[in-house]
């Protein structure tokens, strides 16, 4: 920096980027959310060519570039593939969730891909890869991903 700026205190312009935005969910996600909201069922799309079931459901098979033409019901129970526990209250964490917040990748029975969601009703130190978990549905469902409240451990009888 040249001398002409000696002694100049840098100023900061405080503002925010904040633009209302609506995402059209599309017919695939709409169908998924309607079934979740109204029937408490988790559904996925299936590629007939490679016989794989995708959750979250999408219209096109990411493996073979063909249209997923079938819908299947998948179980509300599955296996924990991996997880993390936030110990710091990151800005992105919704205000109704307080640390420790546990997220898991859950492969539901009947699906070939795993979905992201919360784990709850379990102590952080008890979470293990490979554990069996079950969806807990929210009361007052609105047709979004939080119509599933969280996943909890499957209690062993």
């Amino acid at each position: 920096m040249t001398d002409q700026f000696q002694g100049i205190e840098p100023m900061v312009y405080k503002s925010k980027i904040n633009v209302p935005y609506s995402w059209w969910a599309g017919d695939t996600a709409s169908k998924f959310y309607l079934t979740l909201r109204d029937e408490k069922k988790i559904t996925a799309t299936k590629c007939v060519a490679c016989n794989k079931v995708f959750l979250p459901p999408r219209k096109v098979c990411p493996s073979c570039f063909t249209e997923n033409t079938q819908w299947v019901n998948v179980s509300d129970e599955g296996t924990l593939i991996t997880f993390t526990i936030a110990r710091r209250q990151f800005a992105a964490i919704p205000s109704d969730r307080k640390v420790p917040v546990i997220w898991g990748l859950i492969k539901l029975d009947g699906a070939d891909t795993a979905m992201l969601h919360y784990l709850d009703e379990i102590k952080p130190e008890s979470v293990t890869i490979g554990m069996r978990v079950k969806a807990v549905f929210s009361e007052g469902r609105k047709g979004n991903i939080r119509d599933i409240s969280h996943f909890k451990p499957v209690s062993r009888v």
Partner: peptide, 17 residues
């Protein structure tokens, strides 16, 4: 934005996973 964003993960928590 439709399936995942509302859960509040970010680069740090994703990479931790």
């Amino acid at each position: 934005p439709i399936y995942e964003r509302a859960l509040g993960m970010d680069m740090v928590t994703a990479c931790a996973m």
